[in-house]
Nucleic acid binder design. Structure first.
Length: 156
DNA sequence: CCCTGATTCGC
DNA sequence: GCGAATCAGG
């Protein structure tokens, strides 16, 4: 493409009129890549891009690293030691003053889906009411017992 | 698979 | 500087 002043003018006009890069390319008989490339070099005002390309360089400020689905706990056996420190475990039976039970064993069958990063103060278990005979509440059971998806990409 | 725009990089 | 290739989202 010979970017004559006229060609650049036409590009600027069409660009200003809001045509898509491909459309401009069609009208000018060039590829959309040529259009977008030139527009970029001319520092023409970028119009809303459909994609969000991360502006690297700024320390990735992850808003909420709540990667719950990242590594779902194994749906096989409920871990036996999971019931420590469940905040809203039901009051169960108020232990007689004599017998102190720091860990009310089963009591509330609350969901033991882990939330947050283990080892951090934020870490806790879901502890919503678990489904009968399942270690998770309905919401998390639906996540925990998902069938393996199509894994063709992993096959390699 | 079609579209979109942005960026990369060999030329 | 150029733009095809590639990326990435709809």
């Amino acid at each position: 493409m010979d970017w004559t002043a006229e060609a650049i003018d036409q590009l600027r006009s069409l660009w200003a009129e809001g045509h898509s890069t491909a459309e401009i390319g069609r009208r000018m008989g060039i590829s959309k890549n040529a259009v977008v490339g030139k527009a970029h070099r001319l520092n023409l005002p970028a119009r809303p891009s459909p994609i969000r390309r991360e502006a690297e360089g700024s320390a990735a400020p992850r808003p909420a690293p709540v990667r719950r689905a990242a590594v779902p706990p194994p749906p096989r056996e409920p871990a036996p030691l999971r019931r420590l420190a469940q905040p809203n475990a039901a009051p169960a039976a108020p232990a007689p003053a004599a017998v102190v039970r720091p860990f009310p064993r089963v009591a509330a069958r609350s969901c033991c889906w882990p939330l947050g990063e283990p080892g951090t103060p934020e870490f806790r278990f879901c502890s919503a009411e678990a489904m009968t005979s399942k270690p998770y509440c309905a919401e998390h059971a639906s996540v925990a017992y998902v069938r393996v998806r199509d894994r063709r990409e992993d096959a390699a």
